[in-house]
């Protein structure tokens, strides 16, 4: 008998132990009355952006608000402050980058981890953002790229559109496609492993900067 068959047989035997009345009735799966927790937002657009900005800031991300008209300026200003000249971008970023930047698109043959480590930073878009938790989610679409490019460089600049922002975690889950590789990011990398004191910056990007585009 294979291990698979064996473990499945054990599970079925275990379920029978309770079915003969020696155990409580908890064995039968109770019919689900549908979720009673919040699954729909009560917040309107501007409030959502404000909440997202404040929650991102709480966890030490740098946040800027922009309109379609000021987006290019905000990106340029952020990269200038960071002095990020050599940056890596996903194959189809579709964002205006300032002239002092050399942008390398991560296309086949892909950049190696060591090559990625040599960049000053990475610029991506996002798939979804969750206001309540201050989370941005990347799903590997062409404007976000492979998971490695937003991981290895020490600086991550992420552009989030207002239409991508939801209030609640369940709303984000409902929007995301399960098959894609997903990365949920809430602030820069951090650890609480030493005396449970939070310290920002371990293995992932130590600086996370987010530009929120309204309208």
């Amino acid at each position: 008998m294979s291990a698979r068959d064996d473990v499945l047989a054990r599970i079925r035997a275990a379920a029978r132990t309770g079915a003969d009345g020696t155990g409580p009735a908890s064995f039968a799966a109770a019919p689900s009355p549908g979720p009673r927790y919040r699954t729909r937002s009560e917040l309107a657009g501007p409030e959502l952006l404000e909440l997202l900005a404040s929650r991102l800031t709480d966890y030490r991300a740098l946040v800027h608000l922009a309109s379609a008209a000021t987006l290019a300026d905000e990106i340029g200003a952020a990269l200038r402050r960071r002095q990020a000249r050599r940056i890596v971008v996903p194959p189809a970023l579709r964002l205006p980058l300032p002239g002092f930047v050399t942008a390398t698109a991560d296309t086949r043959p892909f950049l190696s981890p060591a090559e990625l480590a040599a960049f000053d930073g990475v610029v991506t878009r996002a798939a979804v953002a969750v206001a309540e938790t201050g989370t941005i989610v990347l799903d590997g679409s062409p404007d976000q790229g492979r998971r490695a490019i937003s991981l290895v460089p020490d600086y991550h600049l992420c552009v989030v559109e207002a239409g991508q922002v939801v209030h609640l975690v369940p709303e984000a889950v409902a929007r995301l496609a399960a098959g894609r590789p997903l990365t949920w990011i809430s602030g820069p990398s951090a650890t609480s492993d030493i005396e449970l004191e939070r310290v920002e910056g371990v293995h992932g990007p130590r600086t996370l900067e987010v530009v929120l585009v309204s309208g």
Binding site: D58, Y59, A178, T183, I185, S186, P188
Partner: peptide, 9 residues
């Protein structure tokens, strides 16, 4: 935390 820094799927 409201959300941990990274979740991979």
């Amino acid at each position: 935390e409201r959300m941990n820094p990274y979740t991979s799927m």
